[in-house]
Design a protein around this nucleic acid. Structure first.
Lengths: 130, 130
DNA sequence: TATTGACTTAGAGTAAACTTTAAGGATTAG
DNA sequence: CTAATCCTTAAAGTTTACTCTAAGTCAATA
């Protein structure tokens, strides 16, 4: 079992954010000490791993919350979850491909500017304030 | 010369967004008709192309604005611009690699759930509400 | 000429994902 | 025991990037 601080360090999410995620329904059923402190189980950590994974590939928190709500409803929601993941995966692949194309253009621009800079420097643009 | 509607269609940015970008200093010096309507030149279109490119690779609008402000100051800012682009390119590459790793994990999860779903369906989970 | 529809501005409103604040209760090192 | 630290909730505030509204101006057409 892990305290909220430990979980924060392991996941890179702030304690604030962890509570926020709980409020938003991303995680639920986190155990508490008699004093009311959160105690995260390994299962919770597992779920948080998936949350980060989906978040970092651009899934909105609301959709992540839906996904994890389905997970809690058990195997009868497997098909829906598979569909969600499949759609998400396609989206990510599309975005990555788009990104790759845009990055190519950035690379060309960079090369163009680099050549232009060299020309400018060789041409006496350096420090010559005459 | 293009009207704001034409530019909107060509760039995929709404007319609202185009005016917003102007207000935020991303573009400037857009010509006007006697009546005050915006008339975008090919140069403006060129700049908008770069803006979209940088935006779609995740550069914040503020930074894009800085970049284009430097561009307007001319060749003496070439070095700074090259540095910005280089740094941006590195960031994008890093993010893409991170993305790739996260997507891999999503793919595993998807495969795992798919197998689990098949097992569930073959096991009579289909419509049997008994 | 009248009307439709696109354009103008300033400024308010929205959505997502936090982040901070306020006010106070619990736990632990010394 | 007590100070320091960590925890609690509810709610307000922040940032980014739009998006919309209101009130009015301009242009083309029937």
């Amino acid at each position: 079992m892990y305290s909220i601080q430990e979980v924060s360090q392991r996941t890179g999410l702030s304690a604030h954010t962890l509570r926020y995620y709980e409020k938003e329904g991303l995680i639920s059923g986190v155990e508490r000490t008699p004093g009311g402190f959160r105690q995260y189980s390994d299962e919770d950590m597992e779920a948080l791993g998936l949350i980060c994974c989906l978040k970092n590939t651009g899934m909105p928190l609301q959709e992540i919350a839906s996904f994890l709500t389905l997970t809690r409803r058990g195997d009868q929601t497997l098909e829906e979850r598979v569909n969600m993941l499949r759609a998400h995966r396609e989206n990510v692949l599309t975005r990555m491909e788009e990104m790759r194309r845009y990055l190519e253009k950035v690379t060309w621009k960079l090369e163009y500017f680099t050549r232009k800079l060299e020309a400018y420097q060789n041409d006496g643009g350096d420090g010559e304030t005459r």
